[in-house]
Design a binder for these strands. Sequence first.
DNA 1: TGTACATCAGTGAACGCGCGTTCACTGATGTAC
DNA 2: TGTACATCAGTGAACGCGCGTTCACTGATGTAC
Lengths: 210, 210
Amino acid sequence: MPRDLNAVKTEVAAEGPSRERARYHHGALREALIAAGEAILSERGVDGFSLREAARQAGVSPGAPAHHFGDARGLMTAIAARAFEGLEAVLREAHEAEPRGPSARIRAQGRAYVRFALAHPAQFDLMWRRPLLDMADPALVAAGQAAFGVLQAAVDGVAGDPCSPTGPGPTPAAIASWSMVHGYARLALDGAFDPETPGLLDGMLDRLDV
Amino acid sequence: MPRDLNAVKTEVAAEGPSRERARYHHGALREALIAAGEAILSERGVDGFSLREAARQAGVSPGAPAHHFGDARGLMTAIAARAFEGLEAVLREAHEAEPRGPSARIRAQGRAYVRFALAHPAQFDLMWRRPLLDMADPALVAAGQAAFGVLQAAVDGVAGDPCSPTGPGPTPAAIASWSMVHGYARLALDGAFDPETPGLLDGMLDRLDV
DNA sequence: TGTACATCAGTGAACGCGCGTTCACTGATGTAC
DNA sequence: TGTACATCAGTGAACGCGCGTTCACTGATGTAC
């Protein structure tokens, strides 16, 4: 009988983590550790992250994560890469759902960018904490570039593929819109103002001239 | 003979920290700890900050800082407050040195904001790490509000006092320019792009329509 | 000018904490034959 | 279908680390008289 990973996962899910009988092999520890890490980030913020605690929440000994991520940085890097993928997805969605031309698309992406940051504050924070991440990790770098690629494509007014290769580095227009929404998100998350103030985000985007 | 603090300080400065004979009372420990803390931030970043290390660099025992700052958060808060004062100063300078009207003043402040962040990356980082700071500290809150007040005043086009009280909360125009330069600074410090790329900052500011 | 004394600003040893990581090990899995 | 075995994915105790903070203490300062 060949190994059937899906069957194992289904079984784990059916039993639930609390009722689950202790099993020497977890079956989906990598995914469980990422989920636990994300939960810790949400509850305690980036500075409260701990590999031991992730292992604890996954119901596994402190040495176990090393088999999947090497060290603490490895797990954080995986979480950050996944967050960049999520950001890219919502940017792309916003891009594709907006038919009213390039300018509207840029604004739609900007709103999506801010929404993502406010919905996942700790992940968003982690994404930019380079000293904590393994910037040599190909998945992380690729995910980050892909996310920015969607932003750049909107600014370039490219109609078709939003991932078409862009020229030699970011353009001032792309940097302008990226900086604006990034700054808005960060300042809001850092408590500088209330991002939900009616008209504030749209009023700001009105002042972006690309 | 009345106490003469300046004489004490001068003497300390003249001897220099290495030649200085061990003296039970430091004389200017508060200032020395702030300076040491800033040096640590510059060398190791916010995550590398340590109260013990600051005490070490000031040549004092680990318990000594408590007399001046209470705890580690107290020292960080003092450093952040001082950084906000520095930011306010450069913004005000930029404002006053630019005679070509409100729009030019906004851009001048924006350039000064970015310049400050790039010149003091770790302090700039700390300024926004609220979980590490005592947000109930009046000096910190006042310094932060004063800095933003200068930005807001430029956007309001106020000719005279750049600290005139502003209305009920930040305006979209102020948030737009603040967010843009803040995002630029943060993304640059986080390695997203090279902030010194010729024309990038000015090109971005050209796309701000306030 | 001298003296007693309260207050201030340090010392330095100690405590407890949670962390990341290591390591010899073992149970489970899957494959070769 | 059965069996031997390599490999994989865990255990859990232990180590060392640097940290923030505490505490009984002491040396220096400045003031009251």
